[in-house]
């Protein structure tokens, strides 16, 4: 017990120094990402050309696609963090996995919402059981389930291991979502990648939106990761203090 307390005290100063550095980086990323996203809005409204068939509605694409892609990257990160946690058993990987899961679900949820608005204006329906939409919805439910498992009252090791395994297994749905537009040719969802269907001005705006959201996403993941590490410290202190019942 004394050794544990000494270790906690020794690590506290080190963590505080590292935390201050990470906090500054975090703030810079979030501010830069926020500004880039604001600039993206300007680019969407002013710079992006109007598509001939769908008109202004098509501009929702510049919001929708970066949200969806960074959401998928988050789930990839969650799966990788899960694999590294199982291999190394380092709590930091669990914190990163938790951060990626939560951020991914937020982004995927917003992608579904913006997609739904797009569907309402383009196809006159809020929702259709298209393969891309269905697999994306199932993916959101799966990851919401993984997050729910993380809230269960298990010991840290058990919860982290379970979450790691589930994050890896859940990732099986992600390629299905990504490739659904190619796997099921009858989908109403367009396949963007590799088809060369975007005008250069549209591509420039899309890349700018992707980069802006990417910086903001990184800031969010880092912020949530630091918080997850603090939650782990709290749990450890609770055990030392005899508050934890497991």
């Amino acid at each position: 017990m004394r050794d544990e307390l000494t270790a906690i005290n020794a690590n506290r100063a080190k963590s505080a120094r590292a935390g201050a550095g990470l906090g500054a980086l975090n703030l810079v990323l979030l501010l830069a990402g926020g500004l880039a996203m604001a600039a993206s809005q300007w680019a969407i409204f002013v710079h992006a050309p109007e598509e001939q068939v769908m008109g202004l509605t098509q501009k929702l694409f510049y919001l929708h696609l970066p949200l969806a892609w960074w959401g998928l990257v988050s789930f990839l990160l969650a799966g990788l963090a899960g694999a590294f946690y199982l291999a190394k058993r380092t709590p930091g990987w669990d914190a990163l996995g938790a951060a990626a899961l939560e951020t991914g679900l937020l982004l995927a949820g917003l992608a579904l919402f913006t997609g739904s608005i797009w569907a309402r204006t383009a196809w006159n329906t809020w929702w259709t059981w298209d393969p891309r939409l269905s697999t994306a919805l199932v993916m959101c439910f799966i990851y919401a389930g993984v997050l729910a498992v993380r809230r269960l009252d298990f010991s840290f090791e058990r919860r982290a291991s379970l979450s790691a395994v589930l994050s890896i297994v859940a990732f099986a749905d992600v390629p299905l979502v990504f490739f659904s537009a190619r796997l099921w040719p009858r989908t109403i969802h367009p396949s963007i990648v590799g088809n060369g269907g975007l005008a250069p001005e549209m591509l420039a705006v899309l890349l700018f939106c992707l980069a802006g959201l990417g910086v903001f996403w990184l800031g969010l993941v880092l912020l949530r990761c630091r918080q997850a590490l603090a939650e782990q410290r709290l749990e450890r202190l609770q055990i030392l203090n005899g508050e934890n019942h497991e």
Partner: peptide, 15 residues
């Protein structure tokens, strides 16, 4: 159509 576009942008910022 521009209202739908505004709604999409607002939803992202609010989220």
């Amino acid at each position: 159509k521009i209202d739908w576009l505004w709604l999409g942008g607002a939803a992202v910022w609010l989220g």
